[in-house]
């Protein structure tokens, strides 16, 4: 399959079942909502070492938030319910509770319960109070700028982490600019985040390493500087490979984001130095979800 001169590999992205959650952070203005959301979703690129993968889904207008203030919706993913609960407690406790004027609410109505204010309320040292409003419980925790308002319980759902595609280009700059264009379009979608810096990752990994302590190591088959020295997947034209990783609340949302991103890259095409699209997988043995590039783009 070739689209606008871009060869689409006959391969698939392999993704994993994860636990995902949407939370809504509001604040006095968008700047402070983003400050809080950026801190909360920081250092959350990969579950391998961060415990969670997270990102900002989108900025919300006052009309879209529970308390009528500017807000941000964030998505957070972890490998298990237990880990997600732990990550939420830590990240909300350290990054939202601490952020001036912030409040945080559940962003999903359905799913399994996750304690939010239920545990954070104890920061109030007995001065915290709860309110049940329209069937939902909220906690008001006194803090130095007033009150931290937090919903008692949020909801988490079964979701998908690790959807991906690889952009193979003539040069590093061409690969990067194509990925930037793809990310711009993908960020218009809901239910997905691209958790790596700027949505793009350069250090794709393979399973295993020559070093016993490491479970993953550089994907040498896609490293252009090793083209002549390893069993490379790259031909002589490819100068750089970048990857976009997608976590989504649903299988369909990940698939849609992959399609939107790949089509945007294909628009640039061979004329812009884009040669191939490929994807990362583990032979189909590890992940529950497979996203075949050619099926998505047909």
């Amino acid at each position: 399959m070739i689209i606008n001169g871009v060869s689409i590999d006959d391969t698939f992205a392999e993704a994993f079942g994860m636990r995902g959650i949407r939370l809504i952070i509001t604040a006095y203005n968008e700047t402070w909502a983003l400050n809080s959301a950026n801190a909360m979703t920081g250092f959350a690129t990969s579950v391998i070492a961060c415990g969670a993968e997270a990102g900002i889904e989108r900025v919300l207008s006052p009309a879209e938030t529970p308390d009528g203030r500017p807000g941000v919706s964030v998505l957070l993913f972890a490998v298990s319910s237990k880990e997600l609960i732990k990550q939420i407690e830590r990240r909300v406790g350290q990054c939202v509770l601490t952020s001036p004027t912030s409040a945080i609410f559940a962003g999903l109505e359905e799913g399994d319960p996750v304690p939010l204010g239920k545990t954070l309320r104890f920061f109030g040292d007995g001065f915290q109070t709860s309110k049940q409003i329209a069937g939902k419980r909220y906690w008001r925790v006194p803090v130095m700028d007033g009150e931290f308002l937090v919903q008692d319980t949020a909801r988490m759902v079964k979701s998908v982490g690790g959807g991906n595609f690889l952009v193979l280009a003539d040069t590093q700059v061409q690969a990067l600019e194509a990925c930037e264009a793809a990310i711009r379009e993908m960020r218009k979608l809901t239910d997905v985040v691209m958790p790596f810096p700027g949505g793009v990752v350069r250090s794709g990994s393979k399973v295993g390493s020559k070093y016993k302590a490491l479970s993953a190591s550089t994907n040498d088959a896609f490293c252009p500087t090793l083209r002549g020295a390893t069993k490379s997947e790259l031909d002589e034209r490819i100068g750089a490979v970048l990857e976009i990783v997608i976590d989504g609340l649903t299988d369909a949302s990940v698939k849609k984001a992959m399609e939107v991103g790949m089509r945007e890259v294909c628009k640039i095409g061979a004329a812009g130095g884009i040669r191939r699209l490929s994807a990362g997988n583990y032979g189909g043995k590890l992940g529950q979800f497979q996203y075949h590039l050619r099926e998505i783009l047909k």
């Binding site: 009528g68 309110k131 008001r140 009150e147």
Partner: peptide, 13 residues
């Protein structure tokens, strides 16, 4: 005198 955020939810309800 304070702005209490929960009141916006209460009033909206």
């Amino acid at each position: 005198s304070h702005r209490l955020g929960f009141l916006s939810l209460l009033y909206a309800s």
